[in-house]
Simulated assay, not measured.
Amino acid sequence: MESPLFPTQVFSDDFESVYEPSEDTFVMMDAIQQDLPLIQQIKPLVCVEVGCGSGAVITSLAKATDFNGKALSTTRKCGSVNGVEGCVQLVRTDLTQAIESRLSHSIDLLLFNPPYVPTLAQEV
């Protein structure tokens, strides 16, 4: 599992409104890497990342949700730059509400790295 590329000339504007991959992003990716043998053993068919942000984590997986439209755009761009365009299905929703009935009891791998940064009241 490789870390995705984020070329400055492609992503410079995105990180004004999308959480830029940071230490916690890479800790999450390291944890997934450590559990990769188990993940591969269970052969997940449906993988969902709640709050995809930059797309760094989900790029090597399959489906992501985020309420921030700019985050979804950045995730799509991340997939394109890293050669997995079209492999990531993006859904703009709060958590998994829009896909809850379709995925009830079906998610094999759920990833969630909740934000810990201060958020403006209107964004909440």
Rank of each mutant, 00 (worst) to 15 (best):
F15P: 00
T75L: 11
A31E: 04
E85D: 08
A64K: 10
C87L: 14
D66A: 03
T59G: 04
G69Q: 06
T119V: 10
Q89K: 15
F112H: 06
L90C: 09
A31M: 10
N113S: 02
A121I: 09
M1H: 10
D13Y: 12
L110I: 00
P114G: 05
T119G: 02
D30Y: 10
K77Y: 03
L120G: 13
S22L: 07
E2M: 08
L45A: 09
K43V: 07
M28H: 04
Y19R: 03
E16V: 14
L110M: 12
G86K: 11
A98L: 01
V117I: 14
L103T: 05
E2V: 07
C47N: 06
P4C: 09
T25Y: 09
S60N: 15
M1S: 14
P37N: 04
D13C: 11
Q122P: 08
D24M: 06
Y116C: 02
D13A: 10
S101P: 05
I39C: 08
D94M: 02
D108E: 03
G86V: 10
P4Y: 08
V84H: 11
V117S: 06
D94F: 08
L103S: 03
I42M: 11
T75P: 09
D35V: 00
V84L: 11
L36S: 14
L103M: 03
C52H: 09
M1W: 11
C47A: 06
M1T: 15
C52M: 14
C87H: 12
E2W: 12
S73V: 13
V46P: 01
P118S: 13
L72K: 11
C52E: 09
F26T: 10
D14S: 13
M28C: 11
T96C: 13
